[in-house]
Amino acid sequence: MNEISDEPPAAFAALADALVPAAHGMPAASTVVDGNRLAFVVQARPDLADPLAAIVAMPMFDDPATRLDELAAQHPELLAALHLVVVAGYYSDPHVRTLIGYPGQIVRPVSALDYPAYLDEGLLDRVIERGPIWRDPTATGHDSA
């Protein structure tokens, strides 16, 4: 797939929908992973272009599930590439991210002065009360405790 069009090939759309169909309030992959999303994926990972092209160049199929089974059996590396393209295109879409409650990797600077809840709850007290658990090499065969 050397050139990305606005509309992904029909074969890709059918396979993408078989993997990620519309269900449980989520949209189908083919309605999300358009030409722009595919361009994003291939721009970030140019090495995915050839496997994607190889998949869509295969003879057209009647049943996408059968094609996915064939890929799994005969070309697992192509199937892995297809999985990554579909998933990366789908979950980089802002609407999909909103639906799954994922805001992205956001910036939350550490506030080192915050008093940790584990100290407040005394969770380390029991660890400390047990005393040392390291094994003292100078006391052969015995723990330091």
Binding site: L19, V20, P21, A23, Y91, I100, Q105
Partner: peptide
């Protein structure tokens, strides 16, 4: 992140089809 949740896990778990969405929701975060 979500790509990690959606792709086969380190233990090999993967779900495609309608329940893919439930699979990702149960994992992500």
């Amino acid at each position: 992140g979500p790509v990690n949740a959606a792709l086969p896990s380190r233990a090999g778990a993967q779900v495609w089809g309608a329940d893919h969405h439930l699979h990702v929701r149960s994992r992500l975060g």
